[in-house]
Design a protein around this nucleic acid. Sequence first.
DNA 1: GCAAGTACGCACCTTTTGGTAACTATGAAA
DNA 2: TTTCATAGTTACCAAAAGGTGCGTACTTGC
Lengths: 129, 129
Amino acid sequence: MYEMPKSKSDVAGDVFCAKCPARYLITKLSSKWSLLIIDALKDGPMRNGELMRFIDGISQKMLTQTIKELAEMKLVHREDHQTIPPHVVYSLTPLGEGLQEKICSLDRWIEENVIAMVEDNNSIPLKLI
Amino acid sequence: MYEMPKSKSDVAGDVFCAKCPARYLITKLSSKWSLLIIDALKDGPMRNGELMRFIDGISQKMLTQTIKELAEMKLVHREDHQTIPPHVVYSLTPLGEGLQEKICSLDRWIEENVIAMVEDNNSIPLKLI
DNA sequence: GCAAGTACGCACCTTTTGGTAACTATGAAA
DNA sequence: TTTCATAGTTACCAAAAGGTGCGTACTTGC
């Protein structure tokens, strides 16, 4: 597994290096649910139920789990009103906003180029949206 | 699973829709190996062994498998010289070049912001690069 | 008064991911 | 002559991802 460095200043970024924290982060972020949650939060704060309905196909378990990881990475802010029934609001942190621009750019590119990627290709499943 | 539409013109992109091909593609692309291979090919064609050495930690199996998927998505071109011993060269297609810009932008952002994401966080493993 | 919504945690189970080792055929270098 | 590099494939196995169903404690609408 990983080892802790002596000080934080020893940390630097290289995704191609297996032991770099940057690689750890790219491993965490390279999940469809992480990408979709950050994309979904681009227009402002959302609650759990809203995200569930917006991100078609995500389960409650994966939403909770992924949001927790994104919060640990300081990309998403979790605001719990501490009421019963629960009222929790999720939003992007300033750091998350920066990442969101990159991820949205990637997602929009995929949506725009999906036809070129799947045409004449029987191994990629197609379906009406 | 998925169903085939009547014609290709029915295809459109929405990553938030579970049955959209765009979701299928984002699912395939959201793996660390896909992201790293496309990033690695940004400076020109590379051979199998070069990629193995450049992308620290990837196994032969995952490299072969991921490249195959990227080729099916028309993002990577596989040029096999049909010799023994084998000589195969991989490069980005014009489509892959477009995606590479987005992915490199994401990877560089992660490398630049890795410190902000991991500081004061004991759940994220750190290591000297 | 009963059901639904809220945002989870937990246990169980299946599917997918991904590592390792063995094997391929050949040329080139030691 | 023996070893290595090349770019794979295959089988086997362990680990991780991820779905489903249950329970929670309360409020609001029907």
